[in-house]
């Protein structure tokens, strides 16, 4: 999938995260988290795995994490990417 426009998804409330995506020529994932020291590596893993599943190889993904669970991270990243790809049809097979 190709990110063609800037998009935002999620909130900054506790246990949630805000995801922003933007078109770029390379893939870049930027993460800020309140629990960076303990979970920074895990958050990155989940985000990168989610992007890989969706076939996103280019674009900037900025994450502001407020201690979200993996399931929320997956959901918010997926929704942000779909918005950024202007894609309305989900391929459930890759989620």
């Amino acid at each position: 999938m190709e990110i063609t426009k800037e998009a935002i998804c999620g909130t900054l409330e506790s246990n949630d995260l805000l995801v922003k995506v933007a078109p770029r020529n390379e893939l870049e994932v930027v993460i800020s988290s309140e629990v960076m020291r303990q979970f920074g590596v895990r958050i990155r893993e989940v985000v990168e795995e989610t992007l890989l599943q969706m076939g996103v190889t280019r674009g900037q993904v900025v994450i502001e994490d407020k201690g979200a669970l993996d399931c929320a991270i997956r959901a918010r990243v997926q929704a942000a990417v779909l918005r950024g790809c202007e894609c309305d049809e989900l391929n459930w097979g890759v989620l």
Partner: peptide, 14 residues
Amino acid sequence: KDSARLLVYHALRL
């Protein structure tokens, strides 16, 4: 609506 649908999908599997 789009984002909530995915949140629920993943929460169901917790």
